[in-house]
């Protein structure tokens, strides 16, 4: 499948769902800066630390006046330990703390990833589960699958001081009590690799959920990530 098809098919699918639900569709736009620090340890072990902050710029219903402007939403701190268990496979597990207003939310994370290298791109599959706990709410269980691809813009692999395209497409099954929801994400990013241990990515993190309940919510986050390896 060509590069454009890989990007266009998922994007088209996501936008189609968004289009049909646009009449009652709510939206949220904002900023999603993140810092991702990874430390390699012996025997295939690694530790990943992530800080992410979410800031809303606008919120409202499509076709109507927006009803809310800038607002700080939340911050996440996550610590995940990973272990390479095969030639391409890794297992990881960790804990995330979410600070939202006065509330603190706890999340346990487990994930399995496969990263495959092809002649001119890399493809990663991630299957993850998480359990979110917060005071006064029943536990939220999520089972998610993400497909990520990295394409160099020059040559056959991404070398230092080169740009690349990365795209994530993810499906999240969300179960809270008896309520089930499906969230779909599509995240096209432009990356720049300063060195092998230092890179940054900028793009749009598009999220669509609640469309099964007929009142879709679409979220557009401007995502800026800095990856650092020690």
């Amino acid at each position: 499948m060509s590069f454009s098809r890989r990007i266009i098919i998922p994007l088209g699918f996501v936008l189609l769902i968004g289009y049909y639900g646009q009449a009652q569709s709510s939206y949220q736009t904002g900023l999603l800066p993140a810092l991702n620090v990874n430390t390699k340890l012996n025997r295939g072990w690694s530790i990943n630390f992530k800080f992410e902050s979410r800031q809303q710029l606008q919120r409202g219903i499509f076709g109507e006046e927006h009803d809310q402007d800038y607002e700080y939403v939340l911050s996440d701190l996550a610590l995940v330990a990973g272990k390479k268990i095969g030639f391409d496979q890794s297992l990881a597990g960790g804990y995330l703390m979410r600070f939202r207003g006065q509330d603190m939310i706890h999340r346990l994370i487990q994930q399995f990833t496969i990263v495959r290298r092809y002649s001119s791109f890399r493809l990663a599959h991630r299957i993850a589960a998480d359990q979110t706990m917060s005071a006064g709410a029943s536990m939220t269980l999520r089972l998610r699958y993400r497909l990520s691809t990295e394409w160099p813009l020059k040559g056959q692999s991404v070398d230092p001081r080169e740009f690349y395209i990365k795209a994530n497409h993810e499906y999240l099954n969300v179960l809270q009590g008896e309520d089930y929801d499906l969230e779909i994400r599509f995240v096209p990013l432009l990356g720049y690799k300063f060195t092998d241990s230092n890179k940054t990515e900028l793009g749009v993190d598009y999220r669509l959920d609640s469309f099964l309940q007929d009142h879709p919510r679409q979220r557009f986050w401007l995502r800026l990530i800095w990856y650092r390896v020690f």
Partner: peptide, 9 residues
């Protein structure tokens, strides 16, 4: 090999 942390996390 190149790092793949940006594809895993």
């Amino acid at each position: 090999d190149q790092n793949s942390d940006h594809l895993e996390f």
